[in-house]
Amino acid sequence: MEFLLAITIGVLYAAAFYLLLRRGVVRIILGIALLSQAVNLLIFTAGGLREGGVPFIAEGQTALAATSADPLPQALILTAIVISFGVLAFTLAMVHRADQATGTDDVDDLKGTDQT
């Protein structure tokens, strides 16, 4: 399972960086979205995969069973998803405004402020 996830994460990272290196602003945003998904899977995998048990403390017990999954990476991912959702929404709005203001979606044309 780790092997499969590792390959998936690798493919996601590769796709994300390919998109980030494109010139279209929308592709770059898709790249950022893919990147955050790749990172989430990475946290999930690095946190250790365990088969079986959901991380609930069974009735009558005072601690988690040894077979249950670690709940912390899941909490981290949940936080990360919420943050990346908000950031992505902002980025889309910003790019829309940038498109209106500059009239282009090609990052190579966003050089107006770089002239000395």
Binding site: I32, S36, L42, I43, T45, T91, V107, L110, T113
Partner: peptide, 26 residues
């Protein structure tokens, strides 16, 4: 024009930070 560059590169840095946190926790 400045914001597009600023936002994109900072988001990439954040994803590195997050990945580093995950790996460190692992």
């Amino acid at each position: 024009e400045g914001a597009v560059k600023y936002v994109t590169l900072n988001l990439i840095s954040s994803s590195f930070f997050l990945a580093a946190c995950g790996i460190l926790y692992g």
